[in-house]
Amino acid sequence: MAITLAHYLVASGLLFTIGIVGVITRRNALMILLAIELMLNAANLSFVAFSRALGHVTGQLFVFFIMIVAAAEVTVGLAIIIVMAKTRGATDADALRSLKW
């Protein structure tokens, strides 16, 4: 069976869904950040698949930028998680409760 664009898109759709479900269900800030990374990678996969199907490189170029920005985002994210662990002694999203109406 040949692997076509549709296969890649289904895989990327699954990745994206897993990412969203992870963000919603996971309670640990680190795991939520990981789930978001999955969503970004779903976008990467579909960019590369489209890029190959269309036969030009714009999409692949885009992926490089996404990877760089995602790395920067994780750096900042981990720093914030460390600060959170220091102030609260926990990286649990449930601990984020002091702000609400």
């Binding site: 800030a29 950040l33 978001i36 914030i80 998680i81 959170m84």
Partner: peptide, 20 residues
Amino acid sequence: VEAGMKYLILGALSTGFLLY
């Protein structure tokens, strides 16, 4: 810190939507 954490998670989530 809590505000930053929430902004990070939801901001990164919105980036995911945008890119997809």
